[in-house]
Amino acid sequence: MASTKPSIERLPTGVPGFDKLIQGGIPRGFFVAVVGEPGTGKTIFSIHFIAEGIRQGDKNIYVTTEETRESIIKQAAMFGFDFEKAIDDGKLVIIDALMGRHDDPWSLTELDVETLVNKIIEAKRYLGYGRARLVIDSMSAFWLDKPAMARRYSYYVKRILARWDFTALLTSQYAVTTSLGFGFGIEHVADGIIRFRKAVVRGELRRYVIIEKMRQTEHSLRMHEIEIRDGVGMRVKAPTQLRKEDTALPQSVAAKMLAAELQKLLEVPLGDEE
């Protein structure tokens, strides 16, 4: 008797051309690392993910650490997504972790992972029961002064929030010089890794995406070029002929920079691990 594969519920990202690379969407309950250098499209990808959640009737929470709530709302509007209405309708909570307003119930006054998790749970209770989408943009802000704690913090966030029916995107900044992750944390606990890149090709800035990992998924192994347009947003174009090495530093240079980053981690006092 032929065996049948268990059905996997997948959440579409809302990015044209992307979902076909991951068999229709991100498996429900996954925590996915969205990584890359500044300016590669991580926030716009996350906005699409939340906008699609609003369209599908999911509960949606967006945590912003490097931009204000107003900035996220304006960016979404540029691509035709009305986040302000979704907030008024009780379909979306944007937690502002940048401004730290004490008079704002959806604001973080300090960048602490326990405070973050408690606020996200509070937002989920406010939105009510049901399938939920979460974006934390970015996780890097929570370990800027303690890079050696990145993995522990990432594990804590996933362990607690996985009980609340979240499918989550956790963005992480990569260094411009090395294209390396800061803290080496999220990737180790993530169910999937979506990596964004950029390169100047014949004098023109181009952006790319590659799925480096997605459990329970036969995902594309090719790097694809992406396009970002006002009024439209992000879309995935054809596979590129460029190799990963074509958009990275020479291996010898990257190795030296990686060694320097690791040395910084080793120099963190042991007391910071407590």
Results as ranks from 00 to 15, higher is better:
I210C: 06
H219Y: 09
M139A: 12
A259T: 14
W164P: 00
E122N: 09
G39N: 04
P38L: 07
E9S: 13
V232N: 01
G36R: 02
Q56S: 08
L249T: 02
L169Y: 15
E267C: 08
G100P: 00
E67R: 08
Y155R: 06
P38F: 06
S140D: 08
R222T: 05
K198S: 04
R235T: 01
E84M: 10
I194S: 04
P12T: 03
Q263H: 11
R133Q: 07
E212Q: 06
R235V: 01
E274H: 11
M139N: 07
L21Y: 05
T13M: 04
Q75L: 11
F166Y: 04
I94F: 02
G17M: 12
I8L: 11
D88R: 15
G90M: 09
I160R: 12
L92I: 13
N60A: 12
I50R: 03
V201L: 15
A199H: 10
E225L: 08
I228E: 00
R28A: 15
V135A: 04
K264Y: 00
P269S: 14
Y126P: 04
T40R: 00
S140N: 01
F142R: 08
G24T: 00
G36T: 07
L169K: 12
E187H: 05
G17H: 03
S172A: 14
T178I: 00
E212N: 08
G36H: 06
A260S: 12
Y153K: 07
A97E: 07
D82I: 02
T240P: 03
R152K: 14
E66A: 09
T68V: 03
R101Q: 05
R163D: 10
V232M: 10
L144R: 14
K244E: 15
K198W: 00
L144G: 01
V135K: 12
H48E: 03
L170Q: 04
H48W: 09
